[in-house]
Design a protein around this nucleic acid. Structure first.
Lengths: 359, 359
DNA sequence: TTTAGCACTCAACGGGCAAGAGTGCTAAAC
DNA sequence: GTTTAGCACTCTTGCCCGTTGAGTGCTAAA
């Protein structure tokens, strides 16, 4: 228990070390701490505490004649217990609100704006993920007749997403035939998962399509691909160049693996979507990350939801010694703001609002 | 004229030097060239030629005891006169076709795939830009009635783009009222640029909207923002991490400014959209670039068109000593392939095809 | 006009040395 | 018992400096 619970002064020393290391990025020594006035004791005392903190695993020493550096455990304890709550400046809050409000109409743009803001405010790269929605069905087909040679197919998905596709035809189509085709589509293809679109169904559609029968094949293919395309998540990365400020990424290998990670997108998207939906903010430090490449980095993220279901996440990625207080505060605020602005889907809305087609 | 026109052997020497430098990235010396068997003369002769080429401005010498490096003028001459045409391997061609065909339905995805391919094939970062379309007007409004509290507004733009927005209402709307509203919209708001949407027009719409009058204000705002949103171009960058292979980007400052450039997107988008639409492939070397940050880099790009008008561009960005033959070949091929796959807008199409909503 | 030979220049490499930062330990002080 | 001053020790960092080697320009001969 002595080992589990750190004495008050040990905590102070640990916090002071981590604060200093976050600020300056270099190993911090006892003398520096003694001078910084935060602790009311001599460097020798601090040295003793540091030695013990190292024995307990909270600190590490790059080499004999260097100061101490927080270990992963040290950061973990810092984040869980030592972190002082970061209060955003009023100006920052205003900036967030103004910027997000402007983008309210398009989820994509909103996430993009959020990641831009997050990166800008924290000075680390930011990511914004749009998770793959739970398998959506088409709830309704509709069409807009443009002229005899083209029409717009409108597909309404459960969950409110709307997708459109313009079809260019090789032979003329009458409005009546289009209506008939749409009726058949609505009969046969709504509320079905991709796997339930079987050949008999397609043949049935063909027989009902009348003169539009030759259109059925490309149409089905189109619907299939649209449904499949909907399942893809997307990930935006903003501010990678900010990584270069931090000496930990001056190492080419480190930087390179980080850049690869941020480009792959797959891994990150899985990581972000994989977590159980929780209101908490997630802080993954170093090897806590399942993604191997992030052993020397940290990831802070929070899911974003529309009404009940998770539609994405925004996060910050950076060195292990990231400014957790500021980052956690910012990500938290941003995610909550987006949640709020997207509004719940509760039945009684007080105001008109619009949503994009979730493309 | 002696100065303008290089002797045959000088050209050979220049080409050999640039080829070698592109391949190995280091200054190339006379001895190396003499051994490489390409030139049938001694190192001393090559030294003399090199000295003259340097005097003419085609070569540079980092320092006295180093070999020569091509100057910007050198690269320019190389690209314009010396470059041997690069023939893509059949396998590469097949890869491009297969990959692009799979993405045929969505312009965005297609450009994304193209840049992925370009980056992969050339081993440099690739960019794919979707240029802002020339000011588009809405040619038609339509709507899909979902239920009393929501409908989908479908906007058809000249040029074939389709945008949809879902409106959530605070009070019920009847299908008849929606029809009326849409008719009024089609009367008043089609074929108008953003600037022509004036207050009288809005008031007129309001008076015609009947019970949907309270809806008019948010609706107009929505339309306005959609039209404005359409004007935004987009830029995708793929494979930045490949930059790190090249020693010229080991310098942090260089890498950093490059990353910033690739993130800003604005500058690049302007550069790509700014050029007069031409079928040629553009090769910008070093300071030929208007973007200052690219002084040590090169950009190869080509516009992509659907039918007659330019809808985007794809390009490769890399060090000045980039493998121009391969890059030019690849970009050229890709751009042409996309042009072809998107198909002309000639009236007699032989096949059904679909286009996305150009979001 | 080409080539061999040679002296010269200069970046790159590596060893050696001094400086400095930080530690652990011991012994004295509180 | 805890804190602190003092000191010896370690190890990195930076610097100086000589050596090495690649590449050149020039000269003179072929």
């Amino acid at each position: 228990m002595d080992e589990m619970f750190l004495s008050n002064r040990k905590q102070q020393v640990l916090k002071a070390i981590i604060d200093a290391h976050i600020a300056y990025g270099e190993p911090v020594g006892s003398k520096f701490l003694a001078q910084s006035q935060q602790l009311r004791c001599s460097s020798a005392t601090i040295r003793n505490e540091m030695a013990e903190l190292e024995a307990l695993g909270y600190l590490e020493q790059p080499h004999t004649s260097a100061g101490r550096v927080p270990s992963e455990l040290g950061y973990r304890f810092y984040v869980d217990a030592l972190l002082s709550r970061y209060e955003m400046a009023a100006q920052e809050v205003a900036q967030i609100n103004a910027a997000l409000l402007r983008k309210l109409n398009e989820l994509d743009q909103m996430l993009a704006e959020a990641s831009r803001l997050a990166s800008h405010l924290t000075n680390y790269p930011a990511i914004a993920a749009k998770t793959k929605p739970e398998t959506a069905f088409i709830s309704r087909f509709d069409g807009v007749y443009v002229d005899a040679y083209q029409f717009v197919l409108v597909m309404l998905f459960t969950g409110g997403t709307v997708k459109t596709r313009t079809l260019h035809l090789s032979r003329p189509l009458s409005p009546a035939t289009l209506t008939r085709l749409l009726a058949a589509l609505n009969d046969l293809f709504t509320h079905k998962s991709v796997h339930l679109i079987t050949l008999p169904l397609i043949l049935e559609l063909e027989s009902r399509a009348g003169e539009a029968a030759p259109l059925v094949n490309p149409l089905v293919k189109l619907i299939y691909e649209t449904m499949k395309g909907l399942d893809e998540g997307d990930l935006r990365v903003e501010g990678v160049n900010r990584l270069l400020q931090y000496p930990e990424y001056n190492d080419t290998a480190e930087l390179r693996s980080m850049l690869s990670l941020l480009e792959e997108k797959e891994d990150l998207l899985n990581l972000l979507s994989g977590e159980p939906p929780s209101d908490d903010i997630h802080v993954l430090i170093g090897s806590e990350n399942t993604v191997k490449v992030m052993n020397n980095s940290a990831l802070v993220y929070k899911t974003v939801r529309r009404g009940d279901h998770v539609i994405g996440a925004i996060g910050i990625i950076g060195p292990r010694r990231m400014d957790y207080a500021k980052v956690i505060g910012t990500v938290n605020h941003l995610a909550q703001d987006i949640d709020r602005l997207l509004g719940g889907d509760e039945p009684n809305r007080r105001q008109e609002r619009t949503t994009d087609q979730d493309d």
